[in-house]
Design a protein around this nucleic acid. Structure first.
Length: 475
RNA sequence: GGCGCAUUCGUCUAGGGGUCUAGGACGUCGCCCUCUCACGGCGGUAACACGGGUUCGAAUCCCGUAUGCGCUACCA
């Protein structure tokens, strides 16, 4: 019998989609797509206290944004509580699980006592052989763990072995009737026909418990693949202290979904051939969970920014625009002007936020340009500044063609005629047009801005020089 | 504490006994291009955690140590 390959991503709706979770989803998806398998989505919301519907919605939205689609689900575990109880009853009636009447407080006290003695506490199985059923007393259900070592072959870690003593009779059903994670996970993986479980490394130690449960249900456990964790720059599990942890934050920082996807994919996996930028489709053709690295990787936001820049550079203005819209409400429509600007600025930006900030200069009023201090100090100096700017204004105004070539030729000719370097005109012009020390080639800027705005901004500079005040007056 | 897992440049990685005086990428530094900034090009810096084995030969295999991380719940 060969079941179809099926993988799943199973987040808990206790917060936004963590980048570690996003990577897990990506690896699951790539593996499924590579091998023609099915990708399922399951929301693990059995922790009633912490699970929130708006978090689940948020996670779903982030997955879609990232381009991680799924074929099945989402299935909510909270809809399946009866099923979990049913399967537990089955185990109890078969003698594979039993009711435990030990109180949580007592167990807690025992645990503390063991801890003080420096010993590991494991449930001793007191209720295993109990035959009475104290009426009116709450009971949990524990599984009867067979006294044998558990071994399995992990796609990433290789052969892993846990001794029998390491696994105690863990709880399946809480005394309030709710399933524990271990129970719901295994029941669902069985019911859904999951063949491959790729999840975070933090679950490796839980896996023997799951194997015990699969066997109790008479099912062959799926193939496991435990992904190494993503670390922060402090080498500890990525946390808010060391950087943004949710995909949403990266979206807000102006990271493109395909860039995040690409970057996350590179954490623990390499496409070979010294490639760094690789499309999802190309990755799908060669990805395999067994090629994923064993060791944890540090999340390097610098490299993410570089990857994002690579994507921006390779995209056309039309491709960028939809992503840019939310960052640049000033320019909701992609017209010829914006298209030109995006072409000029995409290679100068690593994020959509940076891109928007630069392009925005072209959408403000011509009298509202602010000059950077550094720009003023470096380029708006010299006794002849006002004269140079008037000459420059006149020269540009006289250029009927107003193309990149014609404006450049005109300004360079002006410099020569006055016996001055072209820089004496070019640098102040840059300040007049965008207020910054740097910009795309200045004649591209002038043409991108258009003849009217170029002249208006020069007029404004001249006005400010005459007024002896270089700050914008109207706001 | 117990158990599990991991350990190649600052970071992501290639490498799976000889081709490694260890390759690529990000970052960083220098040079070139140049109206500035980017882009691009060229070049530099920088790593096999440590100690034992196995072997003619080890980054690659084995053992130990150290360090880090994870789990150790009627959380997931």
């Amino acid at each position: 019998m060969s079941r179809p390959m099926k993988l799943r991503f199973a987040p808990s709706p206790t917060g936004f989609l963590h980048v570690g979770g996003a990577r897990t989803a990506i690896f699951n998806l790539l593996h499924a797509r590579r091998h023609g398998g099915i990708m399922a989505l399951r929301i693990e919301d059995t922790d009633v206290e912490r699970s929130k519907q708006h978090h689940a919605d948020q996670i779903l939205a982030s997955l879609k944004w990232l381009g991680c689609e799924w074929d099945e689900g989402p299935i909510y575990q909270s809809d399946r509580l009866d099923r979990y109880r049913e399967r537990v009853e089955e185990l109890v009636s078969k003698g594979l699980a039993y009711r435990c009447y030990c109180s949580v407080d007592d167990l807690e006290a025992e645990r503390r006592a063991a801890e003080e003695k420096g010993e590991a506490f494991r449930y001793p199985g007191r209720c295993r052989t109990r035959t009475d059923e104290p009426a009116g007393q709450p009971s949990a259900v524990r599984i009867k763990v067979p006294p044998e070592a558990i071994e399995f072959d992990d796609l990433i870690r290789g052969h892993v072995r846990f001794e029998a003593e390491q696994i105690d009779d863990f709880v399946l059903l809480r005394s309030d009737g709710n399933p524990t994670y271990h129970l719901s996970v295994v029941v669902d993986d069985v019911d859904m026909g999951i063949t491959h479980v790729a999840r975070g490394d933090d679950h490796l130690s839980n896996t023997p418990k799951h194997v015990v449960l699969f066997r109790a249900f008479g099912v062959e456990p799926p193939t496991f693949a435990h992904l190494p964790l993503i670390l922060g720059s402090d080498k500890k599990r990525l946390s808010k202290r060391t950087g943004a942890t949710s995909t949403e934050e990266y979206q807000k920082m102006g990271i493109l979904p395909q860039a995040l996807f690409n970057f996350l994919m590179l954490l623990g996996w390499a496409p070979g051939g010294d490639r760094e930028i690789i499309s999802r489709d190309d990755a799908t053709a060669i990805f395999d969970l067994s090629d994923v690295n064993k060791s944890a990787a540090v999340f390097d936001a610098e490299k993410l920014a570089w990857v994002n820049g690579q994507y921006l550079m390779a995209m056309s203005a039309a491709e960028i625009h939809p992503h840019l819209a939310e960052f640049l409400p000033e320019a909701p429509v992609l017209d010829a002007k914006l298209e030109k600007l995006l072409e000029l600025y995409k290679i100068r930006s690593r994020t959509l936020v940076e891109l928007a900030a630069q392009v925005r200069d072209y959408y403000i009023s011509d009298t509202a340009v602010t000059y950077e201090d550094e720009a003023v100090k470096k380029h708006l100096k010299g006794d002849d500044l006002a004269t140079r700017m008037r000459d420059l204004r006149e020269t540009l105004a006289g250029d009927a063609a107003f193309t990149i070539e014609s404006t450049e030729a005109a300004v360079r000719a002006l410099g020569e005629a006055k016996g001055l370097g072209a820089g004496k005109y070019i640098h102040p012009l840059r300040v007049a047009l965008v207020g910054r020390v740097s910009s795309p080639p200045i004649f591209d800027v002038a043409v991108g801005l258009g003849r009217n705005s170029t002249l208006a901004r020069l007029d404004e500079l001249i006005r400010r020089i005459d007024a002896g005040n270089l700050a914008p007056q109207v706001l």
